[in-house]
Nucleic acid binder design. Structure first.
Lengths: 208, 208
DNA sequence: GTCTATAATTCGATAGAC
DNA sequence: GTCTATCGAATTATAGAC
């Protein structure tokens, strides 16, 4: 009912992607049927196939776009010229902010990798590797500059990312800690972990 | 073929649990059929129902036993009398060692929580909360003793657990780093994150 | 204790009317 | 662009033979 006359194609396409994302996050890819997605959108199951070739590509598009969006957002937020400490703080705050606004996508991206075809899996992994390299480069430069002390920048970068992304498993909007406070706490944890001092301008509780 | 004469019930029960664990870890709970599990064990699908009431309890038993085993193992490994720094190092090494030997169970425990019934979910969550409290207590005592510096012990405990558990997503036996080296690296990261020094006896690279 | 056979659903995907 | 109807295959779980 209340169906738009004329072309509602673009709108329907967006709604299908949104419904798939919501349902995949809640129940898991394998547990969600095309009929459920259709019902969520308000169309019949057959209509979905006007917008996606099959269920698999509904998932693959979601994951690939998520990683591309993440990398593009970081390219927009990064500041190349900054010193390693400032770059690390920029990264920590960026990562937390970006991920807390996309909890569903983050969850799906971590859980449903094994449901991708081999080809799509490799694409996502390549993008993920690029993102991990961002952190590894920051740590490497910081060690070279003598401001960080880490035994293994590769492992430390994975440790930091896991620590930061873990926030999405417990964070609830309106919870005990506001996002700004969470960012500060995790900046302190991250800088401590890599043996560095937060930049004076915005780091841990200023001395004065 | 080669079926045991007489009672192979106990053996079959174990094999069913092992097959379910392996397949759930590889493909996900919803994507695995009872027929697949039966084939892995070498019986027909109908025979599974002599050992489990349904597919759901196959998962629930796995997750609940995993958490109970984790808590029991920690009770056996902990040393109550130790100072907070030693307790933290004991915990970090215990957590890594325990989890790296149970990668499949860890993965399932994190991924399949939403496929539990409400009652089983609450049981698992209660056990998980107990384990998180172990770390929070160590951090709290360390702050009180002046050997750690953390702004929020609750958040820091979740951050540490996420960081440590993340190892299971990339660790491969025979990889670049042996387990002992990984433990050392993560001890350093953990002590740095909480602003503490590793205990002299076994902490970061000894001065001599 | 295990098998075979099957009931009752549900699935992904397609065909064709409108 | 969407719906209805449906195909063929898969699903969980049970019944009853041995």
């Amino acid at each position: 009912m209340a169906r738009r006359t004329g072309s509602s194609g673009e709108r329907t396409a967006r709604e299908i992607r949104a419904a798939a994302q919501r349902l995949f996050a809640e129940h898991g890819y394998a547990a969600v049927s095309m009929r459920q997605i259709a019902q969520e959108v308000g169309v019949q199951a057959g209509a979905l196939y006007l917008y996606t070739s099959d269920k698999q590509s509904l998932l693959a598009d979601l994951l690939i776009e998520h990683m591309e969006e993440l990398l593009a957002a970081w390219d927009a937020a990064r500041r190349d010229e900054a010193d390693p400490a400032t770059r690390l703080e920029t990264f920590v705050r960026f990562h937390i902010r970006h991920h807390l606004r996309r909890v569903d996508k983050v969850f799906i991206s971590y859980m449903e990798l094994r449901n991708l075809s081999d080809e799509n899996f490799l694409r996502v992994e390549r993008l993920r590797r690029l993102y991990e390299q961002v952190v590894e480069d920051i740590l490497h430069d910081g060690v070279a500059a003598g401001v960080f002390r880490v035994a293994d920048p590769r492992v430390a970068s994975l440790a930091l990312i896991a620590m930061l992304t873990g926030i999405t498993t417990w964070y609830r909007a309106g919870g005990r800690l506001p996002p700004e406070r969470i960012e500060r706490i995790y900046c302190d944890l991250a800088f401590g972990a890599v043996g560095g001092a937060a930049p004076a301008a915005a780091g841990r509780a200023a001395p004065a």
